[in-house]
Write a protein that binds this DNA or RNA. Structure first.
Length: 871
RNA sequence: GCCCGCCUGGCGGAAUGGUAGACGCACCGGACUUAAAAUCCGGAGUCCUGUAGGGCGUGGGGGUUCAAGUCCCCCGGCGGGCACCA
């Protein structure tokens, strides 16, 4: 770093301004404000307290802070809170691996991360902070659950989980690696457990329909949610077994199948059951081969990605089903690993010609492939299928009474026939499943119910809430510590008083994050939500977070808000009016000579571009640029960056480098460039502050450089405002660079009438425009210009003077046949004919038009003239 | 496997269907300096060996249009999600 010249000292300035904001309470708001200002609720997805903030947090919270500060300057009363998504598996892992209690680990992490976030200079109302692992939060969550239960929005049913038979533990999908438990290495089994479910499927039609009106959500997120909810129409068809199978309770003589393609029923070649289907279980009870196959499928885990990418396998049960329309024709019944029990009826009919998965299965097991949909222009006599099923439109053939119909007509016709025969019905189906919320873990919100042998499941009475987690637990045994606790689960039944047991399952942590945004409105309320406060602040006007939450978290929150409305806690049903999804922070990865990954700060890039290990001098392989992760060690610690360059520099770089919805690559050179700009901005301010004190009155006249600067100033106000409104923060930064360049030019101009005034105006506006992005430097610049000034954080956003924004002349592109051949400068309001004449007179244009017949002259005012010539 | 995105100079990117490459980074040249750093000024998509003029150019291929980075179709590469990670 250079030694000459006065420099902006961020180490001194940043904490000083953070204290000034806190002392003034700039970012505090009331639960129900009486200031009459319009409200604006900005929220970033709250962090999991892993211990340290990472660059993804820096990006997320910088984006939110720019919006919060901008809206505040625009006159809104802004709610901008912060809290902690504090329950979850990592705390239990830490407990098992290092013997530290999850609560201690979590609260220490929170303390550290709070300090780090506060160093970023975020305009947050810290008085609203809470952690979801505090009883003062999760106790209210238990109340909401009980209200949902009373409202019929909760039910208990069975579902399949990943079970580690060695550890005796339920495994998360991420804990299943290649079909084995991550700790024990034992093959994972599917196990059936009785669990609590939120009835999200009751809201499926509404959750789907409301997406259409959510115009401040990214289109792709809405599309992903639509696909996830998965509305489909089709038919349920009952197939009769040619011989009944003895089931555990009664004989099974038929199988229900759901299909979206009833029009292809005549192309059927088999029927396939999910391995968990009751009929499959019945067959397995007497057939060792089937039992072995079902057991094999059970070892596949519950993840849809795993199931659908696995090799398609099946087992022929030997059973046959009759075709619904073809007397005497029957098809084999298989058990297949790609049929999902959770979707439809857990059984399908296979039509290999028109479904890719069925085709692969049929080819593998030598089953018939009968095409029944003829593509347009195909010849029915010769049409055959290769390796691709035909799923497009066409005409039905080989299909009895459906022959000659189009696909959609055939669907209607076949459903009518199925209904007439009483063997099927047209149905609407949803891919969305109910939300299973039971987790067999300690570090989560206890589910407030009690199991009584006499009374069954009994809700904990509201007066006994919260059900608090016991602190004295041990993690030396596998399984859920709540199960092993000597006393906690033993309670009297609230109904009959007999000895009973607490539910030891805790909630999925997605429950915690499904209503925290509403709790922030009244974080100290004795009720889950204070109606006046949530009615004032909700919905969140701008929600900001990672695209990885596009489906689950956002959909669950949308459901939860509806459920809270149904139980009288809120008035709105959509929690997030505006959504912005940010990209990830990436960095190059480095691998040392010994094959170990190296952190970026262990690596030096030489002048020749070659990377070496700083400590050993050994060569380093530069790997791909990818999402920062601990395993690849391609992380950069925001704390270290803030110490070295300051929070404003970190904020500026992360805003400047690219559009916020794309992945950003963190680079040292980019940060250094951002740092240089902070110093340059400060120098520009110093130069202006050194000018003789200016009077308040606007000068009568401005010399040319002064006028040019004023135009630049007001163009900057207009363009930075527009960029901020549109989340184009990288463009806002570019406009600020242009503005700084213009100020720099005025610095070098010969002094003339009004120049000093224009420069003061420029710097004053510069500070205001800078403040959402680099709030500390903005305050410093303002203090330099106007010692003892108000805080920029409390100043209103400036308005541009339209007369100064308007261009004096515009450059028009002149094209001949769509190719640029000249440009001309014209007045913004020049008449069309005058512009066309001027364009035609351009030598290069005239040359190209000579001897040609101009058939069309296109003039887009302020933009372009295009001559279309014949021949 | 299924669903959803993204792809523009050496790099990040800008661009209501209307001058492709604003702005920044890196680079090169100049000024300042004993020198370096810092700072300031200037240059630059690429090719036709020139500051005129022109060709080519927004992952590849086709299409719509007076005009396509932008709209449509196909293909490729990269990434996100897939229900117990958060």
């Amino acid at each position: 770093m250079a030694s000459d010249g006065p420099r902006y000292n961020f180490t001194d300035a940043e904490p000083r301004w953070q204290q000034a904001w806190a002392a003034r309470g700039c970012f505090r708001v009331e639960d129900v404000p009486a200031d009459g200002k319009p409200k604006y609720y900005v929220l970033e997805m709250f962090p999991y307290p892993s211990g340290k903030i990472h660059m993804g947090h820096v990006r997320n919270y910088t984006l939110g802070d720019v919006v919060a500060r901008y809206k505040r300057a625009r006159g809104f009363s802004v709610l901008h809170p912060m809290g902690w998504d504090a329950f979850g598996l990592p705390a239990e892992n830490a407990a098992r691996e290092r013997g530290v209690h999850p609560a201690k680990w979590t609260f220490e992490n929170i303390a550290n991360m709070r300090t780090e976030l506060q160093r970023m200079g975020l305009s947050i109302d810290w008085a609203r902070e809470f952690a979801t692992c505090e009883p003062r939060y999760y106790g209210h969550q238990q109340k909401l659950f009980l209200d949902f239960l009373r409202a019929g929005l909760v039910e208990r049913k069975e579902s399949w989980v990943n079970w580690d038979p060695v550890d005796g533990t339920v495994l998360a999908n991420e804990q299943v690696i290649d079909g084995r438990g991550w700790r024990s290495g034992a093959p994972v089994e599917k196990k059936r457990l009785s669990q609590w479910f939120f009835s999200i499927t009751k809201y499926a039609p509404d959750l789907l329909a409301a997406l259409d009106g959510m115009d401040r959500w990214p289109e792709r997120v809405r599309t992903m949610q639509k696909n996830w909810i998965g509305h489909s129409t089709g038919a349920e068809v009952r197939f009769s077994l040619t011989a009944p199978e003895a089931g555990p309770e009664a004989d099974i003589d038929r199988v229900e199948v759901y299909t979206t393609r009833p029009d292809t029923l005549f192309g059927m070649s088999f029927l396939a059951l999910a391995p968990e289907h009751p009929l499959a279980a019945a067959v397995a009870a007497r057939d060792a081969g089937a039992a072995a196959f079902v057991a094999e499928c059970r070892s596949m885990g519950t993840s849809e990605a795993v199931i659908e990418t696995a090799e398609k396998k099946g087992h022929d049960t030997g059973l046959r089903v009759a075709h619904p329309f073809l007397p005497g024709v029957s098809f084999p019944v298989w058990i297949a690993n790609f049929v999902l029990m959770e979707y439809g009826t857990g059984a399908i009919f296979g039509c290999p010609a028109h479904d890719q998965r069925d085709l692969e299965f049929a080819r593998k097991y030598g089953l018939n492939v009968t095409p029944v949909v003829l593509p347009p222009d195909a010849d029915p006599a010769s049409f055959t299928l290769g390796n691709d099923a035909y799923v497009g439109p066409g005409t039905i053939f080989n299909s009895g009474f459906l022959d000659g119909l189009g696909v959609d007509d055939a669907k209607r016709t076949v459903i009518a026939e199925l209904e007439r025969l009483g063997i099927g019905t047209g149905v609407t189906n949803w891919r969305l499943r109910d939300w299973g919320v039971s987790r067999q873990r300690y570090w989560g919100c206890p589910i407030p119910v009690i199991h009584c042998d006499a009374c069954g499941v009994v809700p904990v009475p509201d007066a006994q809430l919260p059900v608090v987690l016991p602190e004295d637990v041990t993690f030396d045994k596998p399984g859920n510590p709540l199960d092993h606790h000597p006393t906690w689960k033993h309670v009297p039944c609230p109904k009959c008083g007999a000895a009973a047991r607490r539910e030891t399952d805790t909630f999925d942590t997605f429950v915690d994050s499904s209503w925290y945004f509403a709790r922030f409105c009244s974080p100290l309320s004795a009720q889950p939500l204070d109606r006046a406060a949530v009615d004032h602040w909700m919905p969140v006007d701008q929600y900001i977070g990672g695209i990885e939450h596009a489906i689950l978290h956002l959909l669950y929150s949308r459901f939860f808000t509806r459920a809270m409305k149904a139980t009288g806690h809120v008035s709105e049903e959509e929690p997030f009016a505006g959504l912005f999804t940010q990209g990830m922070v990436t960095h190059a990865s480095f691998k040392g000579a010994d094959g170990r990954w190296l952190y970026p700060d262990e690596v030096t890039i030489g002048a020749d571009g070659a990377a070496v290990c700083t400590a050993t001098g050994e060569p380093v392989t530069v790997g791909r640029v990818e999402a920062m992760s601990k395993s690849k060690r391609n992380t950069v610690d925001p704390g270290a960056i803030i110490v070295r360059y300051g929070a404003d520099t970190a904020r500026w770089f992360i805003l400047s480098d690219n559009p916020p919805d794309r992945d950003i690559e963190w680079t040292e050179s980019g940060v250094a460039g951002a740092y240089r700009f902070t110093q340059r901005a400060y120098r520009l301010a110093e130069a202006v502050a050194a000018l003789p004190a200016g009077g308040g009155a606007v000068p009568e006249n401005f010399c040319a450089p002064a006028l040019a600067l004023r135009r630049a100033t007001h163009r900057a106000i207009a363009s930075v405002s527009e960029a901020l409104e549109g989340f184009a923060f990288n463009v806002a930064v570019a406009r600020m660079y242009e503005f700084a360049n213009a100020i720099g030019e005025s610095d070098r101009a010969a002094d003339g009438e009004g120049l000093g005034w224009a420069r003061r105006e420029a710097l004053a506006m510069f500070a205001r425009l800078l403040s959402p992005m680099m709030p500390h430097l903005a305050e410093e610049v303002q203090a330099l210009l106007v010692p003892g000034s108000e805080l920029v954080a409390e100043l209103p956003w400036p308005d541009a003077d339209p007369a100064l924004v308007a261009a004096e002349s515009v450059t028009i592109a002149v094209q001949v046949m769509g190719k640029l051949r000249a440009t001309i400068a014209v007045a913004p309001d020049a008449a069309a004919q005058a512009v066309i004449d001027a364009a035609e007179a351009e030598p290069n244009v005239a040359r190209l038009l000579e001897g040609k017949r101009v058939v069309k002259r296109i003039h887009v005012p302020g933009r372009i003239v295009n001559f279309v010539v014949a021949g």
